[in-house]
Design a protein around this nucleic acid. Structure first.
Lengths: 249, 249
DNA sequence: TGCGCCGATTTGTGATCTCAGTATGTGATC
DNA sequence: GATCACATACTGAGATCACAAATCGGCGCA
């Protein structure tokens, strides 16, 4: 996953079209779909239709097919029996597996990033965290998800390895839909408490503490997720996907 | 990457066609390409043409496009400036990054597998290792690669997590072409010494020792790879890809 | 009222076609 | 003999087409 464009696009939605680089349709589709997966446009298990998706995006099915292939390869989507695709439903044990890998991978990335952290990076992270706190205060689910993701990935990008980053991104895309659904339950707590400790450790140059902070943050999220999904008997929560992003399916 | 079919196919080449499952063309293409990447059909940096690939595989470009998309998402292929694809050229630092992630991920998988290891699994691994030793004795490069891969993945499959396995597979696909090229250098040593220690630790139920064995094995491979590629000044080795698998390009 | 069958519709898959951008290779000219 | 220009061939991207399987709907029968 060394090419950053493989799965992760720098989130350019408006056709920037700078330089000789032609803006490809499938790049646009990819960034839309990736964001959609992270902010609740698709529910776990919700079957996505190729043609309807293409219609919603205003293109032919071709670029969508390319994107779906990539998302399947990343584990962000699963093939159903008849070849359709849907975001994965994560059971307790799979969720446990997923978050164990997150701990290892993101802990590693965080520690590496801490070694190379510049004051500018720390300042950037602090600013993002402030926006996250505001979003939490306002009960802005999409804001929470976006700023939390931005906080983590801004840190991880600092590790300087373009091998580990796409792997982490694949993991996030896998639990994104489940994460969003869980946040629709009012009792689901959002905890950004660890971020403060991470920033402190970053400023003090305590690499191991940064790693511990990230791992603790991941464990907290995992526990909350397991609790909420467990309370609801692992059955699907009776919520609908956001239709303001792609239309209905 | 939870669906095992996402990137990794159970290597079914002959149309098994059992049950109601339709054998899809792109699955066949995917398994061919994956094996090709691991046994030297493509060299690092070698540009692959969509149409020629399709012609070599006897299909239309469509299934190939789908497969290339998935391999790009896995990092097994990179997009060139004009949209073509090629296996990545791995420089020393990227190789270092890649193998660091391997240590963490495969170490984790190995330890988990060790906890669940059954006598049957250990016996299977022993048999594979025997075949590997024969291949080494015969200087059979393809055999070495295949059996070594089979040894590792048979162990990792025992970890019972279908989250971590596709990530490891993606990493192997990334360094596969570079690994093959390095083996063409006569001075490249192949070391399966750690496998014996791993099997011993497995039999004794020493989980940590299994993990240590895997990590040591990975470190040894990394060192050998860096040495061989360094000697040749990181320039491309003047070897050709195997044309007996896909034809020439 | 409940169950089963049949047809219309929608599904993904693969092939084909067009188009624009790029590389190639050959020719003429200096 | 070297270099530049133009024409040809080839590249991937996207749209469209064709087909078969599966799904969903409604109708008819028990």
């Amino acid at each position: 996953m060394q090419n950053a464009k493989a799965i992760s696009t720098p989130d350019l939605d408006q056709p920037p079209q700078k330089k000789g680089e032609r803006r490809q349709v499938h790049e646009h589709v990819l960034s839309r779909m990736r964001r959609g997966l992270m902010v609740g446009a698709f529910l776990p298990g919700q079957v996505l239709s190729l043609r309807k998706l293409a219609a919603g995006l205003g293109t032919s099915p071709m670029p969508v097919r390319e994107v779906l292939s990539r998302l399947i390869a990343a584990g962000a989507l699963e093939e159903t029996a008849n070849g359709s695709v849907a975001p994965p439903r994560l059971g307790p044990d799979k969720l446990e597996d997923l978050f164990s890998v997150r701990e290892v991978l993101e802990g590693m990335a965080a520690e590496m990033a801490a070694r190379k952290a510049t004051p500018a990076l720390i300042e950037e992270l602090t600013a993002i965290n402030t926006k996250l706190l505001v979003a939490i205060e306002k009960r802005d689910i999409s804001g929470c998800l976006s700023f939390n993701q931005e906080f983590h990935f801004t840190l991880y990008r600092g590790c300087g390895s373009d091998v580990i980053l796409p792997l982490i991104e694949a993991l996030w895309l896998q639990f994104g839909p489940t994460m969003y659904m869980s946040l629709l339950v009012p009792s689901m707590p959002w905890n950004a408490a660890d971020h403060g400790a991470i920033l402190d450790a970053l400023k003090k140059g305590e690499h191991a503490a940064v790693k511990r902070g990230i791992v603790h943050d991941i464990r907290t999220t995992k526990r909350a997720l397991l609790t909420v999904l467990g309370e609801n008997g692992m059955a699907d929560l009776p919520f609908a996907a956001r239709s303001d992003l792609f239309g209905d399916f």
